[in-house]
Amino acid sequence: MPILVKFAKTLSTHKFGLLSFYDYPISKGPLKGANNKIKTLQKKLMALETTCFSN
């Protein structure tokens, strides 16, 4: 039972954020996709830097 009580308290604490999704159904998917592309470009640039400047 203590696990259920803790779960209920967690839901109660975050209820505003959880319920606000139904008012404003905004997905973070596009933002995460853009961040992933930026990280990929950074990795490619680091690899290019090490290749170009190691010679």
Rank of each mutant, 00 (worst) to 15 (best):
M1P: 01
M1W: 00
M1A: 02
I3A: 02
L4C: 00
V5K: 07
V5W: 02
K6A: 09
K6T: 04
K6S: 11
F7A: 14
F7I: 10
A8K: 11
A8I: 14
A8R: 14
A8D: 08
K9Q: 10
K9E: 02
T10K: 08
L11W: 05
L11G: 09
H14S: 09
H14Q: 13
K15N: 09
K15Q: 10
G17V: 08
G17C: 11
L18R: 04
L18A: 13
L18W: 05
L18Q: 05
L19E: 11
F21K: 08
Y24P: 00
Y24C: 01
P25S: 07
I26G: 01
I26T: 13
I26P: 00
S27K: 03
K28F: 11
K28M: 13
G29Y: 10
G29N: 05
G29Q: 07
P30I: 06
L31I: 13
K32M: 09
K32L: 05
A34Y: 12
A34L: 12
A34G: 01
N35R: 10
N35Q: 12
N36C: 07
K37T: 12
K37I: 15
K37E: 09
K39V: 10
K39A: 13
K39D: 08
T40Y: 01
L41N: 14
K43H: 12
K43S: 14
K43G: 09
K44F: 09
K44L: 14
L45I: 15
L45K: 14
A47N: 13
A47M: 06
L48R: 04
L48D: 12
E49G: 03
E49I: 04
T50Y: 12
T51H: 09
C52L: 14
C52Y: 05
F53I: 05
F53A: 05
F53L: 13
S54M: 07
S54T: 13
N55C: 02
N55S: 06
N55I: 07
N55M: 01
